[in-house]
């Protein structure tokens, strides 16, 4: 294990997930952040595109999010470890099979405390992995029904959205469709999705 100049362990570098990620990263019901049939369950789905607008069939999407009340089942939530609603995991992974399409089943999260007493609008953190991506890329999914909300929980008060150039913000907002939401991801090119330095 290499160490840094101040003697700390050197970080392990990222490498591509490669084309055969389905071998190791397939889980039964992996695409379900919540059990099917749970009241309020919605699908969030979309297509992953490359720089020529061609769907990517060998990618993977993972989501992580708050509970519907905006809390987390995690020791580093200083408000305390919140029990998840029944059947809810807050995490899902889906492969982009079938023409680059991916789909997860989840519950819309609640608003989450943000910096300086502000509130973050409900959002999913989303990672994309694929052959040709030497590191994951990270984006956020926001929901259209919170766009017009003034004050806490609305898009206008969200500091993360505010840091995104206004003309690109729309790439982070899902569209309402039958049964849930659509969120297409464009790795490159026209309407490239906003990705974050995490």
């Amino acid at each position: 294990m290499p160490t840094t100049s101040d003697g700390r362990p050197g970080l392990t570098a990222s490498q591509t997930v490669g084309p055969y990620l389905a071998i190791g990263l397939t889980w039964e019901h992996g695409e379900e952040a919540v059990d099917p049939g749970t009241p309020g369950a919605v699908t969030v789905s979309g297509t992953l595109y490359d720089g020529e607008g061609v769907p990517i069939p060998d990618g993977m999407v993972e989501i992580w999010q708050a509970h519907p009340d905006g809390r987390f089942h995690h020791p580093d939530d200083p408000r305390g470890v919140a029990e998840a609603p029944p059947g809810f995991r807050g995490f899902a992974r889906a492969q982009t099979v079938d023409g680059g399409r991916w789909s997860v089943l989840t519950l819309v999260p609640g608003a989450v405390p943000g910096p300086d007493g502000t509130t973050q609008a409900p959002h999913l953190d989303l990672s994309v992995f694929a052959r040709g991506l030497l590191d994951r890329v990270v984006t956020r999914v926001y929901f259209p029904e919170h766009a017009g909300v003034a004050g806490p929980g609305g898009h206008a008060e969200d500091r993360v959205l505010a840091a995104v150039p206004a003309h690109r913000r729309h790439t982070l907002v899902a569209q309402q469709v039958d049964g849930g939401y659509r969120f297409d991801i464009r790795l490159q090119g026209e309407n490239e999705t906003v990705f974050f330095d995490i």
Binding site: E52, A130, L133, A163, E192, V194, D197
Partner: peptide
């Protein structure tokens, strides 16, 4: 064709 060309936004 798979790397973002726009700058990443600090999260």
């Amino acid at each position: 064709l798979r790397h973002p060309k726009e700058p990443l936004v600090l999260l």
